[in-house]
Design a protein around this nucleic acid. Structure first.
Lengths: 247, 247
DNA sequence: AGTTCAATCTCGTGC
DNA sequence: GCACGAGGTTGAACT
């Protein structure tokens, strides 16, 4: 049976389905009036209301209200779920250690509980990531500037890995930081850290820093200017499918 | 009726429930074998598999597999959902403009569709945030250092707002950046930006920068040291309820 | 397990 | 709307 649903179950009946589903790796949804209590990296309390609770076989639990993409409460994968009935409430508890975290959902009324057998072998294929932008630039380094020659990606420095490292037409070291979207001050600071680290490796070689992104905010532009770092605009919507670009 | 469920519905019956629920602000879940196509800030494709789709009345849509806290695909609040039947598939399309984004979920088989009436007036109360840490320090500035005198919070500078601004025992300007958890290089850079901005406001006054957090990574510690910024450890699990701390 | 950084980040706040 | 920064960020890749 792929889907098992209980409509307005007694707490005891709901408990039975939850325990069975937790035991054999099914996904579960429970909807009803509940309160939520969380304690771990932070602490939270949520008074009574109607919410949709999703328990995944990997130990994830999500509590969704009628608003927002983010669950109002949750536990990440790796937690252990248990259900119980106490004080006239159906409770779902999810716990983990390192860090120690606990989530309690207490239903005073359960409208519906459903267990799902899930089979999903497909992987998401996503394009438009920073990784894709990097590949575009490696395929055609002139997108950065004429004469740019990449020599390494994710090159390690004392300040962390540089997205693209290379040399310009005059042979000067170039640090490139890539962003797939409009950047603010933090990206400028990140580039600065890398440039300073590389500068210590190549003293007196005039290391250059380039921030490659679709656009920059005013504050970031001012910061780049002050730090002698350059912004290089790239079209974020360029066709990724265009392979075989001549070098 | 608080919950309406269709078990193994025909596409046409599922469509009817979806349209009714989208029309009157109910939350919906649909479970079945589906493929997903997304195009917007990025693009993605997801082949057939069993997933749980959640549509919220605020325009959010979530596509959840059996793993992870993050939906495999989604749209944020503010989107418009529509359902249709074409080519033997039940389709749910969610769109928005600015930015232009489109999500298509195509079910070849629907195991269950449910519409929920949701009523939730409770607000989440969360403790342990950076805001709470700030309040603790304002209540007892000696947590930062003896003689520290806060004069402003969220004080504006050319580089952005400073968490806590004040003066030390010798009257020197102090910039405090707060983090509720262990910090890495980016927090050190952020503090640096603020200190440099304030330094331009108070030349030759020796502006100090303090990073107040539970702990720092090695790289961040080295960076702070290099930049003459200080790290001040704070207990992240201190009791927030202890008000009335003497000043 | 810890570090670092990307993310269709999301979300709130302020301008 | 945009900008900026927090987040129980999550998640992945690497050490």
């Amino acid at each position: 049976m792929s889907v098992t649903t209980l409509h307005r179950p007694t707490h005891r009946d709901a408990l039975g389905l939850l325990e069975a589903a937790f035991g054999d790796g099914r996904m579960v949804t429970a909807f009803g009036r509940c309160s939520v209590d969380y304690d771990g990296r932070a602490s939270s309390e949520l008074g009574p209301g109607d919410r949709l609770v999703v328990c995944k076989p990997d130990g994830t639990i999500l509590v969704h209200t009628d608003e927002n993409r983010k669950p109002v409460n949750w536990q990440p994968p790796g937690c252990v779920h248990r259900a119980s009935v106490r004080d006239g409430q159906l409770r779902i508890r999810s716990e983990r250690s390192s860090p120690t975290e606990r989530l309690d959902v207490a239903f005073e009324r359960v409208e519906q509980v459903t267990a799902y057998e899930v089979s999903d072998r497909s992987d998401l294929r996503l394009t438009g990531s920073e990784e894709d932008l990097r590949q575009r630039i490696l395929d055609d380094p002139a997108l950065v500037e004429p004469g740019f020659e990449p020599t390494a990606t994710e090159r390690e420095t004392a300040a962390g890995p540089v997205d693209i490292f290379g040399a310009d037409a005059e042979g000067r070291p170039v640090v490139v930081e890539l962003k797939r979207r409009r950047v603010g001050p933090s990206a400028a600071s990140q580039l600065r850290r890398y440039v300073e680290a590389v500068d210590e490796e190549f003293p007196d070689e005039g290391v250059r820093g380039l921030l490659v992104a679709p656009s920059v905010t005013d504050r970031a532009a001012a910061l780049l200017d002050e730090l002698d770092l350059a912004f290089v605009p790239v079209d974020p919507t360029a066709n990724v499918a265009s392979e075989g670009t001549p070098r």
